[in-house]
Design a protein around this nucleic acid. Sequence first.
DNA 1: AAGACGAAAGTGGTTGA
DNA 2: TCAACAACTTTCGTCTT
Length: 315
Amino acid sequence: MVPEREKGEGRDKKQGKQEEEEDDANVSVCPECGSKCLVRDYTKAEIFCADCGLVIAENIVDMGPEWRAFDSEQMLKRARAGAPLTYRIHDKGLSTLTKWNSLTQGQYKLKKWQQRTHIANTTERSFIFALSEIDRISSALKLPMNIREAASMLYRRAMKKHLIRGRSIEGITSAIIYITCRQYGVPRTLEEITEVSRVEQKEISRAYRFLLRELDLKISPASPIDFVPRFCSMLGLSSDIRAKAIEIIKKASEKELTNGRGPIGIAAAAIYIAAILNGEHRTQKDVSDVTGVTEVTIRNRYKELSEQLDIEVLL
DNA sequence: AAGACGAAAGTGGTTGA
DNA sequence: TCAACAACTTTCGTCTT
């Protein structure tokens, strides 16, 4: 699983690589190993090198038009007039947008009247608010557009089933973001969502369970592996360690050591072990701060993993 | 002094009668 | 609806480096 690397090549470039990773979404060559095999994975919202696994850009957002033009004629044909149809605008982007400051008084009144009838009822009004909430939370979590779209669609579904009434929009939207992230394999912890939400964690998980039941969505438990890339980069750990941690998790799940355990705790422990093995030690507290699981849990998991998998961890 | 360790009690969610 | 249960947290004293 761990990709073999040419000895000596690219080693000298290693210093200071972490800092530049952020701003470079347009690179075509891996800064780590020089490979041109970069993979853009929009479902996981990252660009990574197929050869060494280095994550070059995370949380990439703009994915451009979904079509490709092979000559200028096609280009003209395929480019659409008007704003793109999107679920993230309350009337799916079909209303005509007019610049307010260029209107005469009569036009202004008409426009105002239109607006008032347009957003006549409170349902619509709260829907607009919900969409802006989804947008706000997504931005704060740096989620890619496709997840925002999916979240908006899910909200529509919930609204059609009249599941929103009598519940806080904040709670519902937060839960919907949580659900969508899980569905797309880029899970965020409940804690991370709570940080940018305006309601308590308790309310979010209540809304979460409620929505799962009412929309009968089936969400398989999150895999520890899904958390590894993000946690590793938050800890400033190299790609070697990410690969090692994933390897550990795979072995652990083969031996069914992950059953019934929280995926985040497993991910945290695997990263803790991998970091020590590769000589980039992080304290249990460092890992705990980033992952949100306590040092005690990291200890328990890492003891289990190292004993059952015969991994010697020397501090 | 910082980090790791582990015991013990408390919390919130799940399950099964 | 309630109690039992497992995973996880909180807290804290002790050991190790």
